[in-house]
């Protein structure tokens, strides 16, 4: 019959500098501790991290001489693991982590608003075409359209700058757009990205 050295004896040996004793303790309780952690976090990598952090605490406590012999080794380690699991969930609550799955992909909700290279080239082409079309408008309409669209001026400001009434500025803008549409339709120009 094989005799098993008690945990408390191995703990004493480890405190006295026998590193091998720790390996025996870890291997002896490996399955119980990891299964306990995994049953709570349900993620193998997280469970492994918490297992590692648990034993780092164990090592530090034992080497500092702060371990109390009152309790048993395994329940003490389980308590440390339990506290680290709570810390893990608290941290995740403050900083929720979203992971994709087969049913849900986080990138369907958040995406980079920047255009890709192809769409950017198309947009540049449209902007260029549009500026050529604007050049074809009568001077008064072109002036109002540029102030409104490119300079983002209000119709009141446009009226003041061009020396006409607001209604005239509105009318010129309206005709500028109508004429642009006519040119686009006449020449079968596609101005969509």
């Amino acid at each position: 019959m094989e005799l098993q050295i008690e945990d408390s004896v191995l703990v004493k040996k480890y405190i006295n500098g026998e590193e091998k004793a720790l390996e025996v303790l870890i291997n002896r309780h490996n399955q119980k501790i990891l299964s306990f952690i995994y049953s709570k976090v349900l993620n193998r990598d997280v469970a492994e991290d918490i297992f590692q952090d648990t034993f780092i605490k164990v090592i530090k406590t034992l080497k500092r001489g702060s371990y109390s012999e009152e309790g048993k080794f395994l329940p003490w380690v389980m308590r440390i693991a339990h506290n680290l699991i709570i810390d893990h969930f608290r941290k995740n609550k403050r900083m929720p982590k979203f992971e994709g799955s087969e049913d849900f992909n986080i990138f369907s909700v958040i995406k980079d608003e920047k255009l890709n290279v192809e769409k950017q080239i198309i947009k540049d082409q449209i902007d260029s075409d549009l500026s050529l079309l604007i050049e074809e408008l009568p001077d008064d309409q072109r002036e109002v359209l540029i102030m409104r669209i490119y300079k983002d001026m209000s119709f009141k400001e446009i009226a003041e700058n061009t020396g006409v009434s607001i209604n005239t500025a509105l009318g010129r803008m309206r005709y500028a757009l109508i004429n642009l549409r006519k040119v686009v339709q006449r020449n079968n120009i596609v101005l969509t990205n």
């Binding site: 870890i26 490996n30 399955q31 299964s35 492994e48 297992f51 034993f55």
Partner: peptide
């Protein structure tokens, strides 16, 4: 899963 990976044990040692 049954046990922590051997690498984890090695790291701890």
């Amino acid at each position: 899963i049954a046990k922590a990976r051997p690498e984890t044990i090695s790291f701890l040692m």
